[in-house]
Each structure stands twice: as structure tokens, then as C-alpha cells.
Simulated assay, not measured.
Amino acid sequence: MSAASAASGTRPRVAVTLGDPAGVGPELIAKLLSVPETAQAADIVLISDETELRDAGKDASTTIEYATEPTPGLPLLLDNSAERPVEVFERKTATEAGGRWAMSNLLRALELAKRGEVDAIVFAPLNKYALHLAGMREKDELRWFEIVLGAEDYTSELNILPNLWTARVTSHVSLAEVSAGITRQNVGAASRLLDKVLREAGIEAPRIGVCALNPHAGESGKFGRHEIDIISPAIGDLTADGIDATGPFPSDTIFLRAQAGDFDGILTMYHDQGQIAMKLMGFDGGVTVQGGLPVPICTPAHGTAFEIVGKGIANTGSIRNAFDLAVRIGARRKAAAAN
């Protein structure tokens, strides 16, 4: 059965996978689907199998309601049991089998997106070590998504709290490699991506603050010239193109300004420059968007949380926000494509 047949009207179609089976992902999805408003917001396509859904319900002390044929008000299960590598997955640890299962479900979701049968994808937390055990050669899932989807535009992970978004110029690289990745072109491309996705999420005139790379924004070149030679010229390019970007600001104070409401988004130069602040500001509600891809892909900003698997206490704030954001962006893109 085609996932496209599950769609109704202008409601977005959202593919959902349960992430790494060793972690809290199955519990999170079960809790998400137990809320009636979830199925009311979108046509949901679950990519899993009945065994995983049953076990997920046990973790969450609920029962996942779904259908195997398009049924109004119920998620549609696209059974992927033919790809299940083992009958029972080991929990609370990264395994090759768990990585294979997570990748196979995601691959099916990506194939649906390539055929235009879903408008967005939401996946529960993955474990990068398990993915690499399963054969993923790329550094992270975003680079894998790029290859599978044939993405040609600039891509970057974006991290989101309810009132603040961040994007990165460099991401999953060592600190020793960061400096080489800070170029005028990369700063501009990352800022333009952040501006675009903010607009897709409904912010009509995004205000972007740009981080410095060096302490004290370089102290007029005493601590490095990246701000003078690279970042400031890139901001000038953005301003000339009509993007509201300002900076560079020292990274030890820019998030205080964001908390005061000065910015809708912050561009950081490397992974932890933004992630530490974002997780301190809202760990239980953070969302990661795989920005720049042909289809919006959203996931919680936290990991698989092996230490609490099976306890039924996983917080649903991030998965709820990830789903809501995927619905919002998916609906706007669907409406735009129809016009």
C-alpha cells in the first residue's frame, strides 16, 4: 500500500521511525502516539513492525493504535519486518543489529520522501556508534541523508528551542579542524540556511546573531583575525542580500542577548559553542533539524539515554517539539508546492 494513499487534503504526511531499539526511542514514540492530538495534526506513516510497536507500548505502559490499511485518525504501519535482523534486540547498549534496524527504517522513510509520498520525517534518537557498526561510513546521519536523497544544497544541523534556533558553520569535526572550516563562503551559506528554515517555520523577518570564533571576538586581532578577515565580511555579504545578520559577538555573551529576545537565531562556528548553551537552556525540549535537505527531517536533540531504558520515565518534550516542527514545516512546503 502506498503511503500517498494515507494522505487527506492539505494535511502533511509525516513518516515516523522509532530510532535505535536499544534506547528510549520506542518509548518516546509510543507516548507521542498515545496523545490524540498527534494523529489529528498529520497523516502519520509508521515504519516499523508489529513486534517493535508492541514492545514500545510496554515500555510506555500504553498501547499504540495503528492500522495496516489507510484508516482516518490512525497511523498507517508500513511493515518493515522483512528487514528485521534479529528477533529480540539487546537493550541499553549499541549493537550492529540495532544500528541495522534503525538504518533500514530510516532508509524506507527516505525512499518515501524521494517519491513525494511523505512531506516530513521524524526519527527517535539514534546511536552513532551502532550506525557505524552497521556499516554507515559517513561521520553522521546528516551526511548519509545527503547521499541517499541526492542533496546538492548546503546542509547543516540546526538546533532549536521554542524561541531560539542555532546553526553551525562546522559540526562533527575535531576542534583541530574547526579553523580551516571557517571560511567566508561557509559562514554565508550557514547563515542563509538558518534564515531560510526560520522563514519556513513561520518567522517572517528572522534576526540572526553571529558568533565570533575567538575569545573576546578576537580583541581587534590580538587573539586571531577570523572575525576581521572572514566573519565580518561574510556578515556584510548577508546584509547586502537583505538578511538581518549582526555580529560577530563573543560567544560567552551572545546567548544572554538571545535570552533577552534580541535574536531569533544564532550562527555558531563549531558544535559545542552552541550546543552547551542550548542544552543548558532547554535540554528536555530541544530539537535537531537536518537543514538543507529536500525534505524536513526532525529529531530530539538528546540521545538514546540507555541509562533510563525500560523505566517508563523518558521525557517527551523534545519528541513532541520535533513532531510539531516537522508538521509545521511539512505543511508550509506542501502548501507552497500546491500554489
Rank of each mutant, 00 (worst) to 15 (best):
V327A: 05
L213M: 15
A240F: 09
P85I: 11
V14A: 11
A41Q: 10
E96F: 08
A212C: 05
G209Y: 06
A130Y: 01
Q290Y: 14
S61H: 15
P12N: 08
V86T: 10
A7Q: 11
K128N: 12
G282C: 05
L18V: 11
L133H: 00
E307C: 08
M136L: 14
Q273N: 04
D79P: 00
G23M: 05
A7P: 05
A113E: 00
G57T: 07
G282T: 06
W144S: 12
L53T: 03
T304N: 02
V16W: 02
L194K: 03
S191G: 10
R11F: 10
F249V: 10
E177C: 14
A338Y: 06
A30R: 04
C211F: 04
N321T: 08
R207Q: 13
E27D: 07
S34V: 08
S179G: 11
A176D: 14
Q40K: 15
P21M: 07
D229H: 09
T17I: 06
A42E: 01
A277P: 05
G247C: 04
K31R: 15
G135V: 05
P21V: 06
E65H: 14
S179D: 13
A120W: 02
P162H: 05
S156P: 01
R115K: 11
A326N: 08
A260F: 07
L164H: 06
P300Q: 04
I308Y: 11
A201R: 14
P75M: 07
L76D: 03
A3L: 12
A338M: 14
V327G: 01
S104H: 09
F123L: 13
G116A: 10
T316G: 01
A245F: 01
P72A: 11
F306I: 02
G303S: 03
H132E: 01
S104E: 13
V24A: 07
R108I: 12
F263Y: 13
G292P: 06
S8K: 10
D119Y: 10
L46F: 10
S191K: 00
N159T: 14
P206Q: 09
A260S: 13
L110W: 02
R115S: 10
V24I: 13
G312F: 02
L256I: 07
L32C: 01
A102G: 11
I64Q: 02
G116E: 07
V45K: 00
L126M: 12
V88K: 09
